[in-house]
């Protein structure tokens, strides 16, 4: 069952349409009972940020997210997995990342989506640089210990 699932992974500069990705996953199917979508957006940090610059490691970004997705497919009975991660300059309100998981029941879809995001945060080769609302180029965002801890809770 899970062996037949081929994750859809896209690393792109352009925007994505979450509804269209869900439709592509579920179209023509009658066996899916639960779809979970997670969208990560660029926020303005209380008006202090004008943009985020996302740098990535081309090639490895696709490969690493593919490895993470295959681990999810091995751990939960999923009927579909889509991960889209953008790179380049994002303004507050812009989409950054999309995770879509589908399963027969909600628990697997929720857990797999949460696992995918926790692992993406600490293992997918992307780095965020902040640009201030006053026009200054800011600092690289520091990795959060909480993100590492979130990923660690999935280790068996």
């Amino acid at each position: 069952m899970s062996g037949a699932v081929r994750p859809t992974i896209r690393i792109q500069a352009g925007d994505f349409d979450a509804a269209a990705e869900v439709a592509a996953m579920t179209q023509g199917r009658t066996d899916i009972g639960a779809v979970v979508t997670f969208c990560g957006l660029c926020r303005d940090e209380g008006g202090q940020l004008s943009a985020l610059e996302l740098e990535h490691y081309p090639g490895m970004a696709e490969a690493e997210i593919g490895r993470i997705a295959m681990e999810a497919v091995g751990r939960w009975p999923l009927q579909g997995v889509t991960v889209i991660h953008r790179y380049g300059r994002m303004k507050p309100g812009d989409n950054i990342v999309l995770v879509v998981t589908a399963s027969t029941h909600r628990q697997a879809a929720f857990e797999a989506a949460s696992f995918l995001m926790d692992y993406l945060k600490s293992r997918a080769p992307f780095w965020k640089k902040e640009h201030g609302a006053d026009g200054t180029a800011g600092d690289w965002v520091d990795a959060k210990e909480a993100d590492d801890e979130a990923a660690a809770r999935w280790r068996r």
Binding site: M60, L120, W127, K128
Partner: peptide
């Protein structure tokens, strides 16, 4: 071989 800081994507 790639060298980089801890990752901050997602």
């Amino acid at each position: 071989i790639a060298l980089f800081p801890p990752m901050t994507g997602g």
